[in-house]
């Protein structure tokens, strides 16, 4: 398992280097996030055409789908970061994994809330046991478990490792859960109308969606880096470089 990794990998593992590197990245990502999100929102709300079946409620897609994608990839990132932390004993990876959990949970809530609201005009009910919504609910439960476990340990090192194990177990289970929920859904309500499975979306509909997805990712990167940076400072508070950072703040 422990084969030699490229130099940047070890550099990234140094807290000081991580802090300086993210200082340089943050303004760029913040600018990109604002630009993409504002463009995408205006494009999606004002210029994109309404769906011929669902009308204007279709515009919820520009938050619901990016939120769903981000919530899932955030879990994958958390589990992968946890695995890197476990295998290479890299503290920064644990810091990143820990910062992922609250963001991912809030984005999962966003996906659920917008999905439920979208359900009202589409299906006539605020909550429908749709396969995607149910899977997202289970994903939120997985996030809640990770957050609860992480806060239950007093020792940081144990909390890191325990959450990494749990998120890896969750990651392995996610495909099984998705498959089982989809199967359960077809069993109980055959041929429901799925909102997001569009046969062919014209470019003026999916281009703003793409912009929004990128914007969500940039936003996630900004919040993730800010949270991880504070955690790095917290963990390295005895070192000289952190003292310097504090004095210059």
């Amino acid at each position: 398992m422990k084969k030699k990794m490229p130099r940047w990998f070890y550099q990234l593992a140094s807290p000081k280097w991580f802090y300086e590197f993210t200082s340089a990245l943050l303004p760029w990502f913040s600018a990109a996030a604002i630009l993409l999100l504002v463009t995408g929102t205006i494009w999606g709300l004002v210029f994109a055409p309404a769906d011929y079946q669902q009308g204007n409620s279709f515009r919820i897609i520009y938050i619901h789908v990016p939120a769903s994608i981000l919530a899932q990839s955030c879990y994958v990132m958390m589990a992968v970061a946890g695995a890197i932390g476990l295998i290479w004993k890299m503290k920064i990876a644990h810091v990143v994994a820990g910062a992922c959990a609250p963001i991912g949970a809030s984005i999962a809530v966003m996906s659920l809330a917008t999905g439920a609201i979208w359900g009202k005009p589409t299906w006539g009910a605020w909550w429908v046991w749709d396969a995607r919504l149910t899977s997202m609910l289970v994903l939120l439960f997985l996030y809640i478990g990770v957050i609860a476990l992480n806060s239950a340990f007093e020792n940081k090192a144990s909390a890191d490792k325990a959450t990494a194990i749990l998120s890896l177990v969750g990651l392995v289970n996610i495909p099984i859960i998705k498959y089982s929920v989809e199967w359960w859904n077809t069993l109980h309500q055959p041929a429901t109308f799925t909102v997001t499975a569009k046969p062919a979306m014209p470019p003026e509909m999916w281009l703003p969606l793409l912009v929004m997805v990128l914007g969500f990712y940039c936003f996630f990167a900004v919040i993730l880096m800010s949270r991880a940076r504070v955690e790095v400072l917290q963990r390295e508070k005895r070192t000289d470089w952190v003292k310097k950072v504090i004095q210059n703040y």
């Binding site: 929102t41 709300l45 309404a50 009308g55 204007n56 409620s57 515009r59 919820i60 938050i63 619901h64 939120a67 809030s106 984005i107 809530v109 966003m110 809330a113 917008t114 609201i117 979208w118 009202k120 005009p121 936003f219």
Partner: peptide
């Protein structure tokens, strides 16, 4: 938003709050 103003604005509002 046609007849869907409530739903669209509620969704975008929730998204904004979470952001």
């Amino acid at each position: 938003m046609g007849t869907h103003g409530l739903y669209v604005w509620l969704s975008y509002g929730i998204a904004l709050v979470i952001f």
